[in-house]
Amino acid sequence: MKLDSKYFDGIRTKRKAKPEAATAAPTCQWDGCERPGAHRAPVGRNAEGQFFLFCFQHVKEYNKGYNYFSGLSDGEIARYQKEAITGHRPTWTVGVNKESRDSPLHSKADARFASSAAHTRMKDPFGFVAQNGTPKSRQPRARKLKTLEAKAFDTLGLGASSSSTEIKSRYKELVKKHHPDANGGDRGSEERFRAVIQAYQLLKQAGFC
């Protein structure tokens, strides 16, 4: 088309649409607040990827009291921290072939039988091997307590050598003693009551009772 064409003047360029006004920020989700909620705050455990929307002032207030582990016992927190090291994925001992370990030829029963047979044929004039055929170096040793386990025993007022029956009996005694209904809602007794329950749950999960 030539510039002096009679059709040139009739061409009209399409006007560009004006950009829509930026969408207004949603209202702050804090009760009674009408300011824009432009700041995200995590909802909490088991709701990863979900967020509340607060204004700047209220997101600071929310973050001050936020606790991801709220409601979990010491034992559950310790287990979560241990699993977090591996990204909460299952792990196996280095150098162990799982399929070989689980095969019938490598069962624990066969291993014990082979070990027993070997010790039966072995002479032991100096008594280095126990009477049941297990080397003394492999005899079960006293279990070393973890920090939280030792704290749980201390909370219940028991020693690490306490039996399952003693732990349960002591737990029932302390729960009855510090129950809020038996202490008129005393705050100190309520805290003690909660600590006793958490200590018992930790020891139960650890296999002490």
Rank of each mutant, 00 (worst) to 15 (best):
G184N: 14
A25V: 09
S164K: 15
A150D: 10
R138V: 00
N67P: 01
E190V: 09
D9G: 08
A117V: 08
S73A: 12
D154C: 01
A114P: 00
I85M: 08
K108Q: 09
K204N: 11
A84P: 02
N97A: 10
Y171C: 02
H39M: 04
T91R: 12
R192M: 13
F8E: 08
H178G: 01
I77Y: 04
C28N: 07
N46K: 15
F52I: 01
V59F: 01
Y66P: 07
K2M: 05
K16N: 08
H106Q: 12
A111E: 13
S116E: 12
E191F: 11
E190L: 13
G75Q: 11
D154K: 14
T86Q: 10
A206P: 00
E99C: 01
P104K: 12
S162R: 03
N183D: 05
F113I: 11
G207T: 01
A114M: 10
A24N: 10
E173P: 03
G87H: 07
A130G: 10
P26T: 10
I77V: 15
G133Q: 09
A160R: 13
R170H: 01
Q131C: 01
G159Q: 09
Y7R: 03
F52L: 10
K176V: 02
D102F: 08
V129T: 14
D181M: 12
N46I: 04
G44K: 06
K176S: 13
S137C: 02
D110T: 03
Q139T: 09
D102A: 11
A78I: 04
A111N: 11
H39A: 02
A150G: 07
R170I: 00
T91H: 02
G133V: 07
I167C: 02
I167A: 03
Q131L: 08
K172V: 03
R79V: 06
L203W: 05
W92P: 00
K144P: 00
N63L: 15
E20Q: 14
H88G: 01
L148S: 05
P19N: 13
T155R: 06
I167L: 14
P36S: 04
N132M: 03
R194F: 06
H179I: 00
Q81D: 10
F153L: 02
Q139H: 06
L158Q: 06
E61W: 04
Y68E: 14
F54W: 07
A150S: 14
A199W: 09
G10V: 06
P36D: 07
A152S: 15
G185D: 14
S116P: 00
T23I: 14
L174V: 01
R45Y: 12
F8L: 14
A41D: 08
